[in-house]
Design a protein around this nucleic acid. Structure first.
Ligand SMILES: Nc1ncnc2c1ncn2[C@@H]1O[C@H](COP(=O)(O)OP(=O)(O)OP(=O)(O)O)[C@@H](O)[C@H]1O
Length: 846
DNA sequence: TTCTTCGGGATTTTT
DNA sequence: TCCCGAAGAA
C-alpha cells in the first residue's frame, strides 16, 4: 500500500537521516541496526512500526520487544502518537512470555492461574529445599545457588539436563553437584505450587516453542513482524525465542550496540548480535553513525574510554552538536561530602543555567550508594526520585497482601500460603506449618486444602487445627466473593483478615506501613480503572510481579533522578553526574578479582553507557575514603577516569606528572567552564570538592595529595579535616519534636540500640501505659485514643488482642478480678477472656 | 509458640 | 549496614 499523493508517510517527516530512513523503509526480511549511543536506534524502531502499520500491516501482527516496561510504554505511546488509533502491543520479553504461558502453559505443566514468584520467594523456596536436603545455607548461599540456576535456565536447560551435564560430563565441581540436586528439587516445588520464577517465564516458553511445532507455527503466523530493541542484551533463551518466532517469515528487525552490553552477568550473550548476520545471511545491515544526543566533548570522552576494550569492533561515531562544556571531575573527602558537593553543584548549575531539576540525573554503580546522596539532597531541599531496588513492592506489608491475593488466585501457591498463614499472627507456628506442609505434600493436595481438612490430620494440636480452619475459611470466603474488581476484594481482604489493625498511627514505622497499604489500594484502584473492561486478579498480580525499579521514574516529576548505571541504559538527561568513580566500585571489585578480562570490559561498557546518557554536561565524582558496610575504605580513582582522557591530552603526553600545574588554578579561567567554583569562600558550600580532579595517576589520593590539594589557589580554602564539621553544615532537622520525645536521645544510639529502646517503649505502652493504639476504626479514619485502664471493660467496647486482632465486646460478666468478657472478632469468631489475665486492651473509645 | 537478641556473612548489577 | 538463623526467655 503506497501512501497517496500529498500525504507524506510517517517516515518522511524530515527528521530522519538517510541511514535511519533506510532502516525505517526496510520492510521484509531480517534487518540489523548496529549503532552507537544516541544515534537514534530507538527512534528507528518506533518509526518502523508506524511505517509498517501505515503500509497496511495489522498492528496485531507486529510484535515489539523491549527489556523494560518503561521502554515498552514509551514506544507504545510514540507509535500511538504517530499512528493515532492503532494500538500496537509493545511488551517486555518477560511480560510477553507470561501471557503466552497463560494461554499455552498446559504444554509445560502450568495452569493458567500460575503465580510469578519474586526474588524473596525464590530465596524462601531455595531455603526450604536446602533444609530439606540438610544443606547448610551458610556454606551454599541461596543467592549463589539461584544465580547458577538462573544462568542454567537462561540457557534453556532443564534441571535434568543440568544434572546430566554435571554428572555425566563430570565437568561440574562440587558446587555444581549441589546445584544439580537443589535445582531439581526447587523446580519440582515450583511446578507443584503452580508457580514460576522470572527465568522460567523465558525458559518455559523457549522449551515450549522448541518442543511444540504447532504452537511455534501458530505464533509464527500470528506475529509476522518482530522487532527487538537492545538486542545486545538478549540471553540464549530470548535469542532462541526470537529466532523460533521469526523462523518462518524472517521478518525480524533488531537494534543494538555491542558496546552497551551490560548484562553478561545474567546470561546475556554478546554473540547473539555479533552472529546475527550468520544466523540470517540475507540480513540487511544498517549502521547509524551520527550521534544526536551528546556534545562533542562527551562523545570524544566516551570513545576514548571504550577503545580500551580489546574485544571489540571499532565503530565510527560523530556528532554535529556543539563542543560543549568540559567534563568535570570532583574529589571529596568522603561520601557525605560527596553528597553535599553533588547537591551544591546541582543547585548551582540549576540556578546559573536556569535548568529544572528534572534535567539532572545521578548514576551510581551500586544501590547502596544512593543513601548519602538522598540525605544530602534532602538537606538541600532538592526534590529527587530514586529508581530504587527496594521500592514499594518489596515492603513486607505489600508482599503480605499480595500473597493473600496470590493464594486466592492460585491455591497451590505454597509460598504465598506460608507467608500469610500466620500474618497477622494467628497462633500458627513454624512447627505446625512444617507438619502441615509435609502432610499436604504426602497427600498431594494444596496447602490450603490441607488447612481446611486439618482436623483429619492427627499430628496437630487442637489449637492449631482450629486456627488453620479459621484461616482456610477466610481465604475461602474471599475466593467465593464475586469478583467485581481488585479494589473491592482488597477492602474485603483487610476486613476479613484484620490486616493492619494492630498498627499504631503514632509510630513512624507503622505510619509508613499504613501508607503503603493505602498505596497498594491506590495501585489496585488504578488497575481497575485502566482495565475497567476486564479486570482480573491475575492481571493485577502479573503487573505487580513484573514491575521494575525503573517504572517508578517519571520524567515529568520535576525532580532529580537517581538510579544505577544499569537502569540508565536507553535514557538520556541534559546533565549527568556519576558518583563513586573509584577502583573497586567502578570497575567493581568483583570484576577486578575475576581472571577473565570480559568482566572488566563489561564494567567499562557500563561506564560508557553512563557517560553517553549525558546530553550537555557530565560530572564525575569520587572520594578519598568511603564507608562500606560499616567499614572505612580508602578509595583510589577509577582507571576509567584516566581512560576518558578528560584533559584532552593526546596519547603521548598522557602520563605527565605536572598536570596539576598545567591547568590554571580553579576558578581562574574559562577552563573551568562555568562550573560551580569550589573555591568560592561561601560557607553555604559545605561539602565542596576538596579538589578538582584531573583524573590522572597523579591524582591518586594519598595523604600527600590531599595536603597539596588544599593549598590555596586550586582547592577549597577550608582544610578537609575541618570540612567535616563546618559550623553551618546543614544539620538534620529533627522532625516534630514532642516534649517527651526520646527520638532526640536515641539519635545518638546505634540502630540496634534505638530499635531496642523503641521496642521497650512499645511494650510499656502495651502494658497499660498510654494506649495510643490505632484501631480498625482509626484505620478507616475515625480513630481516637483510649483513656481507660485494662480493668474496666464494658459491652460495646472495642478491644485489641495481640494475636487475634481487634474485636468488640459483646458480653461481659463478673466484676474486678473475675470479670469475663466475650469478644467478637471480624471473622465472626467469638472468644471469652478473663480480663485480668488476658492481653486485651481497650482501644478507640468513642 | 512467639518474641528478642546477638553473631556472622554478604552478589553488585535486574526482569 | 542489613538480613538471616540460632538460641534463649517468656
Ligand atoms: N534524525 C534525528 N534528528 C534529530 N534528532 C534525532 C534524530 N534521531 C535521533 N534523534 C535524537 O537523538 C537522541 C537519541 O535517540 P535514541 O534514543 O533513539 O538513540 P539510541 O540509539 O536508541 O540511543 P542509545 O543506544 O544510547 O540508547 C534522542 O533524543 C532522539 O530524539
Amino acid at each position: 500500500m503506497r501512501p497517496r499523493k500529498g500525504v507524506p508517510p510517517v517516515s518522511a517527516t524530515g527528521d530522519l537521516n538517510p541511514a535511519q530512513l533506510e532502516a525505517v523503509e526496510h520492510r521484509d526480511g531480517p534487518l540489523l541496526v548496529l549503532a552507537g549511543p544516541g544515534s537514534g536506534k530507538t527512534r528507528v524502531i518506533t518509526r518502523r512500526i508506524a511505517r509498517l502499520i501505515e503500509s497496511g500491516i495489522y498492528p496485531s501482527r507486529i510484535l515489539a520487544l523491549t527489556f523494560t516496561n518503561k521502554a515498552a510504554r514509551e514506544m507504545e505511546e510514540r507509535v500511538a502518537g504517530l499512528m493515532p488509533g492503532s494500538r500496537v502491543w509493545v511488551s517486555t520479553f518477560h511480560r510477553f512470555c507470561a501471557q503466552l504461558l497463560r494461554r499455552y502453559g498446559q504444554a509445560v505443566g502450568l495452569q493458567p492461574n500460575f503465580s510469578i514468584l519474586d526474588s524473596s520467594d525464590q530465596g524462601a523456596l531455595i531455603r526450604e529445599v536446602l533444609s530439606e536436603q540438610n544443606i547448610d545455607s551458610s556454606h551454599f548461599s541461596p543467592g549463589k545457588l539461584l544465580g547458577r540456576i538462573s544462568k542454567s535456565k537462561s540457557r534453556l536447560q532443564s534441571a535434568e539436563e543440568f544434572a546430566r551435564e554435571v554428572l555425566d560430563g563430570r565437568q561440574g565441581n562440587y558446587f555444581d553437584q549441589v546445584v544439580a540436586r537443589v535445582y531439581q528439587n526447587y523446580q519440582d516445588l515450583l511446578l507443584r505450587a503452580n508457580s514460576v520464577d522470572f527465568d522460567d517465564l523465558l525458559c518455559h516458553v523457549g522449551r515450549m516453542l522448541a518442543e511444540n511445532d504447532e504452537i511455534r507455527h501458530d505464533l509464527g503466523e500470528r506475529y509476522r513482524y518482530i522487532l527487538v530493541d537492545e538486542y545486545q542484551d538478549t540471553n540464549f533463551a530470548q535469542y532462541q525465542i526470537v529466532k523460533m518466532l521469526a523462523g518462518s517469515h524472517r521478518n525480524l528487525c533488531v537494534t543494538g550496540d555491542p558496546d552497551q552490553s551490560i548484562y553478561g552477568w545474567r546470561g546475556a550473550e554478546l554473540g547473539n548480535i555479533l552472529q546475527f548476520e550468520q544466523d540470517f545471511p540475507e540480513t540487511r545491515v544498517v549502521r547509524l553513525e551520527r550521534n544526536y544526543r551528546s556534545t562533542k566533548v562527551i562523545c570524544r570522552a566516551a570513545d576514548a574510554l571504550i577503545v580500551n576494550n580489546v574485544r571489540r569492533k571499532a565503530k565510527t561515531l560523530f556528532t554535529d552538536n556543539d563542543e560543549g562544556a568540559r567534563i568535570e571531575s570532583l574529589f571529596f573527602d568522603d561520601q557525605h561530602l560527596e553528597g553535599e558537593g553533588v547537591s551544591t553543584v546541582i543547585r548551582q548549575i540549576a540556578q546559573k543555567e536556569g535548568r529544572p531539576w528534572s534535567d539532572f540525573a545521578i548514576f551510581y554503580r551500586v544501590n547502596a550508594l544512593s543513601r548519602p546522596l538522598e540525605l544530602a539532597l534532602g538537606r538541600h531541599r532538592i526534590p529527587y526520585q530514586v529508581a530504587a531496588g527496594l521500592a514499594f513492592y518489596e515492603r513486607a506489608e505489600v508482599k503480605d497482601l499480595l500473597a493473600y491475593f496470590r493464594l486466592i488466585s492460585n491455591p497451590a501457591d505454597r509460598l504465598a500460603f506460608q507467608r500469610v498463614v500466620n500474618t497477622p499472627v494467628r497462633g500458627i507456628g513454624k512447627t505446625t506449618v512444617a507438619r502441615l506442609m509435609d502432610w499436604a505434600d504426602q497427600q498431594g493436595i494444596a496447602p490450603l486444602d490441607a488447612a481446611r481438612q486439618a482436623d483429619q490430620f492427627p499430628g496437630l494440636t487442637r489449637r492449631a487445627t482450629l486456627a488453620l480452619g479459621r484461616f482456610a475459611e477466610i481465604i475461602n470466603r474471599l475466593s467465593m466473593t464475586p469478583f467485581a474488581g481488585v479494589t473491592p476484594l482488597f477492602d474485603e481482604l483487610l476486613k476479613q483478615t484484620g490486616y493492619g489493625t494492630g498498627l499504631d498511627k503514632h509510630d513512624e514505622a507503622d505510619l509508613q506501613k499504613l501508607a503503603n497499604i493505602e498505596e497498594l489500594r491506590n495501585a489496585a484502584a488504578q488497575y481497575d480503572q485502566e482495565h475497567a473492561a476486564d479486570p482480573t486478579l491475575q492481571g493485577f498480580l502479573e503487573n505487580s510481579s513484573l514491575v521494575a525499579d525503573l517504572d517508578s521514574v517519571d520524567e515529568a516529576s520535576g525532580k532529580v533522578t537517581l538510579m544505577t548505571l544499569h537502569a540508565a541504559k536507553g535514557l538520556e538527561f541534559p546533565v549527568v553526574l556519576i558518583v563513586a568513580v573509584e577502583e573497586g566500585l567502578l570497575p567493581h571489585d568483583r570484576s577486578l578479582r575475576s581472571e577473565s578480562p570480559n568482566e572488566i570490559e563489561e564494567e567499562r561498557r557500563l561506564m560508557f553507557v553512563g557517560v553517553t546518557r549525558a546530553r550537555e554536561r557530565l560530572l564525575l565524582t569520587r572520594t578519598w575514603s568511603r564507608d562500606m558496610r560499616g567499614q572505612r575504605m580508602l578509595s583510589a580513582p577509577s582507571r576509567f577516569l584516566e581512560e576518558l582522557n578528560l584533559s584532552g591530552r593526546r596519547d603521548g603526553e598522557r602520563k605527565s606528572h605536572d598536570s596539576l600545574a598545567r591547568h590554571p588554578p580553579t576558578g581562574a579561567g574559562n577552563d573551568r567552564n562555568e562550573l560551580p567554583d569550589p573555591n568560592v569562600d561561601d560557607p553555604a558550600m559545605a561539602g565542596n570538592p576538596v579538589a578538582i580532579d584531573e583524573g590522572g595517576p597523579e591524582a591518586i589520593p594519598s595523604e600527600a595529595f590531599v595536603m597539596k590539594a588544599v593549598k590555596p589557589g586550586r582547592t577549597a580554602r577550608i582544610p578537609p579535616e575541618k570540612q567535616v564539621s563546618l559550623p553551618n553544615e546543614p544539620v538534620e532537622a529533627p522532625v516534630t519534636v514532642r516534649p517527651e520525645d526520646r527520638a532526640a536521645a536515641s539519635a545518638a544510639l546505634s540502630r540496634r540500640e534505638r530499635e531496642a529502646l523503641e521496642a521497650k517503649q512499645r511494650r510499656q505502652s502495651k502494658l497499660g501505659g498510654i494506649p495510643n493504639l490505632t484501631t480498625g476504626a482509626a484505620l478507616l479514619g475515625a480513630g481516637g485514643t483510649a483513656e481507660s485502664t485494662s480493668s474496666n471493660f464494658r459491652v460495646g467496647m472495642t478491644v485489641r488482642h495481640p494475636q487475634l486482632g481487634v474485636g468488640s465486646i459483646v458480653a461481659a460478666s463478673g466484676e474486678g478480678k473475675r470479670q469475663t468478657v466475650t469478644v467478637q472478632f471480624p471473622d465472626g469468631s467469638e472468644r471469652s477472656f478473663l480480663t485480668q489475665k488476658s492481653p486485651l486492651q481497650p482501644v478507640g473509645l468513642r
